[in-house]
């Protein structure tokens, strides 16, 4: 969090710069069918953002109580929940959590040659409820709830701007370090369940979602209005649809990119070093070239 605070001024400078770049241009073209995705103030956004530990903890609670009944998180291991830069739960608590995780680990063969099921350990993956895609589809009416380990990096928001503001938009994103397209999409999806508009032909068993490509999604609204979970007193936020969606999105963003905190902290050290060295080299070069006419 310290790193976040120190770079915050820089971040706002860049944000202002970015704003300047695009105020001259017309607002992002709101294309016909393409839904407009809001950009959220994620704590981990931009070049200086870091994960909010309390938010990741709440987000894990939402994942555990809501998403985990269908979605696996198998690239994440229980030990990751303890490590720095993540939810940073207590190790003993995660051991206990792993031991009572509903989806057991298949291990073996044992001395009799049979496979057996055992409780997950810290080193095991956060297993989903289904053995494989076929089982998932047969239970979920043909739909496949994807593993969520990489979901925020596997989704994005397209830059649908017209060609003449395409480049300024790109420049703004690069300078402000906008890398939260996947999170913005996921949040919009989780909060995008609506009544299907009149005349919309909704297939049986499908749900209308304003942000899902094609607007028909097999997943029923996972988080109801008012929220799906009870946050603890000291969790730092009140449960609601928006808050749950935001928290679980942040948690999944961490799951997909667990080294983000370390990466951005190193980033500023490296940037500082590079800028100083480049300036030094530039003046050294000037000094050297001052010996000749050029």
């Amino acid at each position: 969090m310290t790193a976040y605070r120190t770079v915050a001024p820089l971040r706002s400078v860049l944000a202002v710069l970015g704003a300047l770049i695009c105020t001259g241009a017309p607002a992002m073209a709101a294309g016909g069918e393409a839904a407009h995705f809001e950009r959220h103030e994620w704590s981990f956004a931009g070049v200086g953002g870091q994960y909010d530990r309390n938010q990741l903890r709440r987000g894990f609670q939402v994942y555990k109580e809501v998403c985990a009944s269908c979605h696996a998180l198998e690239r994440v291991k229980f030990r990751n929940l303890v490590q720095k830069g993540g939810p940073e739960f207590d190790e003993e608590a995660v051991k206990a959590l792993a031991a009572e995780w509903p989806n057991k680990i298949t291990d073996g063969p044992n001395d009799e040659g049979a496979m057996f099921e055992r409780e997950p350990k810290l080193s095991d993956k956060i297993k989903g409820p289904y053995k494989n895609e076929q089982e998932a589809r047969s239970i979920q009416n043909g739909a496949y709830p994807p593993d969520l380990s990489l979901i925020t990096r596997a989704r994005s928001v397209h830059n649908e701007a017209s060609w003449y503001i395409h480049v300024p938009m790109m420049l703004r994103d690069v300078l402000t370090g906008y890398a939260e397209g996947g999170s913005d999409y996921l949040y919009a999806l989780l909060t995008g369940y609506k009544e299907a508009p009149q005349g919309f032909n909704l297939a049986e068993g499908m749900n209308y979602n304003a942000y899902f490509p094609g607007n028909q999604i097999a997943m029923a609204q996972p988080i109801p209005e008012g929220g799906a979970v009870e946050y603890q007193e000291n969790a730092g936020a009140k449960s609601s649809l928006e808050q749950n969606a935001k928290d679980v999105t942040a948690f999944l963003a961490w799951a997909a990119d667990p080294s983000l905190n370390e990466r951005k902290q190193l980033g500023w050290t490296v940037m500082l070093y590079l800028i100083i060295t480049t300036l030094l080299l530039y003046f050294a070069k000037k000094r050297i070239w001052s010996r000749v006419k050029h």
């Binding site: 990096r153 370090g177 890398a179 980033g267 490296v270 590079l274 480049t278 080299l281 070069k285």
Partner: peptide
Amino acid sequence: AKDAVALFAFVIVFAWFVLFLPDY
């Protein structure tokens, strides 16, 4: 000397993407 200045300036751009926008 000139190459060194340009190389480091280039590495700033490189590092920006690696450290802040690895997926961009």
